[in-house]
């Protein structure tokens, strides 16, 4: 019971600290705007978007392609016995636009980018680089967290689109080779299964997951203690926390959407 209480307490403290970091970041950005200076360097922002977005495309596409293919294969195998295998493209479309696209993208980005954020900022913290940035009066949160957070939040919806398209490609392979669904019929089934509500839900989830992964990755990096070993521990913590939080908030959004809009 005591351990549970301790765990709950440290969770609340962690959430509080992450939110405090977010508010500090926003405050530092506002200071910069009031000074009439750019919030962060665009070159810095584009370097991050390249790293978060472009460099993540192969992994997101590959994971989603195989997942889409597997789902189509498994469900196609079952539905075929009832003669309803034509539902497979619709199923994959709906599953990926509202649920699996954002979720898989969130998990892949947490593992790839969240970990990199923590390792990079952790190393900078240990080698006093973050303190030097603070000492120059540049506002380390604005300078370091700002472009990273902006990049991940803007890139996650784009990556989610790639995830959905890759999954549909995987599904198409199964439809073509196993379920004998023609390309025009496949297209029609996919387009008829694209609902604005699902797309909006997917985009909202992407924005939320991007914020979570970005904040957790940066927070864990900026609070590293204990040198190289500390960076390693923080990186592991960052990935575990980001993935757990992503799945947790995915569930919360699903519950809210189901209760409010279904």
């Amino acid at each position: 019971m005591f351990a549970l209480w301790q765990m709950g307490r440290s969770l609340l403290v962690g959430v509080g600290n992450v939110l405090a970091m977010l508010s500090q970041t926003v405050a530092e950005c506002l200071d910069q705007i009031r000074r009439g200076r750019p919030v962060f360097r665009m070159a810095n922002f584009f370097a991050q978007t390249d790293r978060v977005g472009f460099d993540s495309i192969p992994l997101v596409a590959m994971v989603s392609f195989f997942l889409g293919l597997t789902i189509a294969l498994m469900t196609g195998y079952q539905l075929r016995t009832f003669g309803t295998d034509y539902l497979v493209p619709s199923l994959v479309t709906i599953a990926f636009t509202r649920e699996l696209g954002p979720l898989m993208t969130g998990i892949v980005v947490a593992a790839r980018v969240g970990a990199a954020y923590t390792a990079e900022l952790g190393t900078m913290t240990v080698s006093e680089e973050v303190e030097a940035i603070e000492g120059m009066g540049l506002g380390p949160l604005r300078f370091l967290v700002g472009p990273r957070l902006a990049a991940i939040v803007t890139q996650l919806p784009c990556l989610s689109v790639i995830s959905v398209l890759s999954a549909l490609l995987g599904c198409w392979v199964v439809c073509q080779t196993y379920l004998q669904i023609s390309w025009p019929y496949f297209q029609e089934l996919v387009i008829n299964s694209l609902y604005v509500k699902d797309i909006i839900t997917g985009v909202v989830k992407c924005l939320l997951f991007g914020t979570i992964v970005g904040l957790v990755g940066c927070y864990k990096g900026l609070t590293v203690r204990g040198g190289a070993a500390g960076v390693g521990t923080a990186t592991t913590d960052s990935v575990v926390t980001s993935i757990t939080a992503t799945i947790f908030f995915d569930t919360i959004v699903n519950v809210i959407v189901t209760i409010a809009f279904e």
Binding site: A27, D31, E120, M124, S127, E128, E129, A132, G135, G137
Partner: peptide
């Protein structure tokens, strides 16, 4: 406050023991 402190920091600088140059 944070803003005034950052303005003051413009007028001073620190040379760190291990230089603290931004490695990237």
């Amino acid at each position: 406050n944070r803003r005034a402190l950052n303005d003051l920091r413009k007028e001073m600088a620190m040379v760190y023991q291990y230089s603290a140059l931004i490695s990237s």
